[in-house]
Design a binder for these strands. Structure first.
Lengths: 249, 249
DNA sequence: GACAATTATGATATAAAAATGTTATATTAT
DNA sequence: ATAATATAACATTTTTATATCATAATTGTC
């Protein structure tokens, strides 16, 4: 079988979450219908998709999808941010990775150093299993389906007990006036506790988050040390950062 | 033969855990295809790698890949076990899912009931995000790369605090004499604590685990309530189960 | 250093396997 | 009942692996 074509097909289906055979045929005009069918059979046997008469659908579940969709958004920006963040990760330090897509991309890029990595993202923990040197610790608590993150009282208690050198915190929305915001109270509690405990706090602010505000503020500019972004900050952000000694990467 | 090249090839395969012949050819453009084949034959005869049509794979994979491989093994058996386990899950109860591939398959099959699900498997937690009703709680602690499971002091403390109605425990090895075993001390501590706390303890014993013994015993027959398996138990298991009032599903 | 013996490599032909296409037949939806 | 779609069976093409032989490089011996 042609792996590359099959992966393209799967990608297409995942993106659109459904696809007709005709669409796929049009997408790959140089192979026969039968081959498409066979490719789909192969993909189906891996459990990634399901065939039905006339087409196929992705088997990924609604909540996964939201996360996966966000995972595919602005990949380049996330890569840029990950590269910047790597410069802040020192061997033999203890770092915290907040749940979320930016930090999952960061997790994929972390080298095999002697680190203590604490995370609220199970997906991040799984990703880090590819490495041999870091000790990976998962925060306990309740899963938030939206951001695949852990929060709750147990998590807070645990964070209270550990030491964090550098914390990478996901930001859902921000403004120069209200600071850094997120969508739930539970997440807010986690993020603000971590920032209090960490020696260095790094805000992972993809560009699109900077024009958006979420209900809960978890940190103001004076609480943080670095802002990592994928493009450039607007003047008011820069000004506010400078005023509070926040370094922009 | 050229030892140095062969070692480079082996290194490359180990690092990527698989390699296509084409990749290797591109990597060593100054030798012929035939030579690559012969190198691979030599490496295969040492038992370090395995050839398959189109490429080679390493026998020792990074742990995350190892987990995925185990995930694909005996899928039918795991499905059978999952179906049996479902009959023990009651609405509005608190269940514990141990990390591991059998319970990940079980997780994929759990219906959208009002459950409290506690798990040591981040992959299981992610899978359960597809559901809307259960409250999913992840145990805190350190990741064991081999079974993608969480263990350690934090996890033990957390388990101590919660109530578990039915616990589904993964079994790595078992015998009628020594009972149920696993591979690390940390896992042993988790499993035995959970069994102590749970009202009902269910051992998930795929057939292939029953002819295998692992270093740490975490439970004897008298500690457990159910054994779920995908085929049939041998006479000595049945006898020992009956003696201790363990129900075999 | 010359020479044989061994080992490694490359080229080509051949065999095996896998992927694809074609056509015929079965299934399904309306 | 009919048209659309899916599957099965077989033929063909393409890809990949092996066997064989010739040649080159390396090693050991005198």
């Amino acid at each position: 079988m042609n792996r590359i074509r099959q992966e393209k097909i799967q990608d297409y289906i995942e993106r659109n979450s459904v696809a007709t055979i005709k669409e796929l045929q049009a997408l790959f005009p140089d192979v026969s219908l039968m081959t498409i069918h066979r490719d789909l059979d192969a993909l189906e046997s891996t459990g990634a998709i399901v065939k039905y008469r006339g087409g196929v659908k992705s088997l990924h579940h609604p909540d996964d999808i939201e996360f996966n969709i966000r995972m595919r958004e602005n990949i380049q920006g996330k890569e840029i941010m990950a590269q910047k963040a790597l410069s802040l990760i020192k061997n033999r330090s203890s770092i915290f990775l907040d749940a979320g897509t930016s930090n999952l991309v960061l997790g994929k890029n972390i080298p095999d150093l002697s680190l203590n990595i604490i995370t609220t993202g199970p997906a991040i923990a799984i990703e880090l299993c590819r490495l041999h040197n870091p000790i990976v610790t998962v925060c306990c608590g309740d899963m938030n389906r939206k951001n695949m993150g852990i929060s709750g009282k147990n998590a807070l208690e645990m964070i209270d007990k550990i030491n964090i050198d550098t914390a990478f915190i996901g930001v859902s929305g921000a403004s120069s006036k209200v600071g850094f915001t997120c969508g739930t109270e539970a997440d807010m509690l986690i993020k603000s506790s971590v920032i209090k405990k960490a020696r260095v706090s790094v805000m992972m602010c993809a560009q699109e988050k900077l024009t958006r505000l979420m209900p809960y503020t978890f940190a103001s500019f004076s609480d943080v040390d670095y802002i990592i972004t994928d493009y450039e900050l607007s003047a008011d952000f820069k000004e506010e950062a400078e005023k509070n000694g926040v370094i922009i990467l």
